[in-house]
């Protein structure tokens, strides 16, 4: 033990982080499809869009927060001691994933705030904004999930 914050919780936190990220990946995939169809005029999908926007806001924020909690352990034990020494490509890939997730955070929050109150019949411009956010957040979540799986395959905790 090196006295790192939440070191003994690293494995359960990683499993929880992966489960929540999986839920976010599913919800963003659905909303990317539903959001684009809604922007093309299928107004009956409004309720589904409002639900997915809330699910994505909650799961993205939860996955991000869990990642922040695990980060001190990752930075020293996983990256500092192992990845930087034996698998530097995985270390770089993780940092790209981590920063991409941070770049997606304002988009997921915007999607949550605007999407949960969406009224497509009244606001076509807002519907297009929500559809664009949905596709962008989907791209971010899928890329970070795949990168996360690759890095965890090398060294998870």
């Amino acid at each position: 033990m090196s006295g790192i914050f939440l070191e003994s919780w690293a494995r359960p936190l990683l499993v929880l982080h992966a489960c929540v990220a999986l839920a976010a990946a599913g919800a963003t995939t659905h909303l990317a499809i539903v959001g684009v169809r809604l922007a093309r005029g299928e107004a009956h999908l409004a309720r589904l869009t409002r639900i997915y926007a809330q699910v994505i806001g909650a799961t993205y924020a939860a996955a991000f927060a869990l990642g922040l909690l695990m980060y001190p352990h990752y930075r020293y034990v996983v990256r500092g001691l192992y990845l930087d020494r034996y698998e530097p490509w995985a270390s770089s890939l993780f940092d790209i994933k981590e920063n991409l997730a941070a770049l997606g955070l304002p988009l997921a929050l915007a999607l949550f705030v605007v999407g949960r109150r969406l009224e497509p019949e009244r606001d076509p411009a807002v519907t297009r904004w929500v559809a664009a956010l949905a596709v962008a957040v989907w791209l971010v979540v899928v890329t970070t999930a795949v990168a996360g799986l690759l890095v965890t395959d090398v060294k998870g905790v």
């Binding site: 090196s2 020293y76 500092g80 001691l81 990845l83 930087d84 020494r85 530097p88 270390s91 770089s92 940092d95 790209i96 920063n99 991409l100 770049l103 988009l107 664009a132 962008a136």
Partner: peptide
């Protein structure tokens, strides 16, 4: 979306060419 793409591209550029500095082993 321009800022998203530009910032993500900058990070990929910076991190793909990074020289890793491992910490001393205990």
């Amino acid at each position: 979306f321009a800022l998203l793409v530009f910032t993500a591209a900058m990070y990929i550029y910076l991190l793909a060419g990074r020289t890793a500095l491992p910490v001393p082993l205990p």
